[in-house]
Amino acid sequence: MPETASDSRLRWRCRRGMLELDLILQEFLDKGYDLLDAKQKQLLDVMLEYPDQLLFDLLLGNMISSDKDIAQFVTRIRNTLRT
């Protein structure tokens, strides 16, 4: 779970305009963030810059990213929700 100021900033960036994104991202921060390596944290950073609608389509499985790293990371986030 994030504790430093930069991690708090990350948590705030996970406050989005859609409830679905709030729930997925907050749960992922709580359960999966501490297990990420530096590259994966960077991927999360990239994804949080996406518009809400795109993030929604990726995380809800309506769309698969053509970037393999992002696609794999999305799967990781979705799997975390089911643990």
Partner: peptide
């Protein structure tokens, strides 16, 4: 309080 394009209108 959030970046403008993350407002709830998006939903």
């Amino acid at each position: 309080k959030v970046f403008p394009t993350r407002s709830h209108t998006v939903a």
